[in-house]
Design a binder for these strands. Structure first.
Ligand SMILES: [Mn+2]
Ligand SMILES: [Mn+2]
Ligand SMILES: [Zn+2]
Ligand SMILES: [Zn+2]
Lengths: 148, 148
DNA sequence: AATCGTTATGCGACTAAGTCGCAATAAGAA
DNA sequence: TTCTTATTGCGACTTAGTCGCATAACGATT
């Protein structure tokens, strides 16, 4: 379902412009990597790919840009159950959140959109009077192929 | 709702024994820290507290024990939105999971048990044929006191 | 109680992820 | 163009977590 290839390229760039945030070469490179990603990428993968666009991009710029995008609510940060290593993964945020399921045996990541999840968030907003900016549901276990 | 002081001390120790896992001094110290915790602790806090019981406990033993307890499904690991720093937090697992909400302004962590969350997990098990071992829902935003 | 295979430990050196201060550079408004 | 301010690369640093190894402790068995 997710990782929407479906959007206009340059959308992230446009959103930043709308908010009066300065656009730079490194940022353009990093944004394009995130926009065209077909899977969840970690910071060092984003760096590597961004460097194929602009060879001068530095690691700290990647982290600073990821922070910016997080603060702007334009990307989500994931653990994916830290199946190997402690790195975090990133994906751009779309209108509807989705759940991540990570298979502890084969490592497969499955994504799932659920109306119940939306209700649950509504419940939190209402009953707890909590204003949600990010909601991250990650599940670990065995996928349909791996559970015996 | 959370962090159940209500249980028999030594319960974790008993569960490990049942599974034929060797008990040692350092493990007893670490288990007692986790059992008597009144808030979410990170690895270095667990180390510090465990050392007041058994001064020889080493950092790597803490990590190895946390890994063991995770594998045994006896504790949960949390990010708590990485409000400051990258450390992970731990709490013992009880029968019913709960949701963690982290206020991005004041840092307050709120816990919440929800029947809807339970239904959602059932939905994942059914519709996705996914066998859930861990489910972690973490929310970031503004708590009732902080949203204006 | 003494033996003994196995598992766990402390130590220390290491990796990997992420941060930060700073001087140099580039945006973009005027 | 000029000028202010935000951003960058660099490099040194911190912090979280890992790993190999020699030693020690567990606990089942005699
Ligand atoms: Mn994490
Ligand atoms: Mn909790
Ligand atoms: Zn699988
Ligand atoms: Zn608050």
């Amino acid at each position: 379902m997710p990782l929407p290839q479906t959007e206009i390229p340059g959308r992230l760039q446009m959103q930043l412009a709308e908010r009066g945030i300065r656009m730079t070469g490194p940022r353009r490179a990093i944004l394009s990597v995130i926009e065209t990603a077909t899977k969840h990428l970690d910071a060092s993968q984003i760096l590597r790919k961004a460097r194929t666009v602009d060879a001068s991009v530095d690691r700290s710029t990647v982290y600073r840009t990821l922070d910016l995008l997080k603060r702007q609510g334009m990307i989500d940060e994931l653990d994916l159950m830290h199946l190997n290593g402690e790195r975090h993964y990133y994906e751009r945020k779309t209108g509807h959140d989705h759940i991540h399921m990570a298979c502890l045996r084969c490592g497969k990541i499955t994504e799932f959109v659920s109306k119940t999840f939306e209700s649950l968030k509504k419940q939190l907003e209402g009953e707890c009077r909590f204003h949600i900016l990010v909601a991250r549901l990650e599940v670990g276990g065995y996928c349909s192929a791996c559970r015996r």
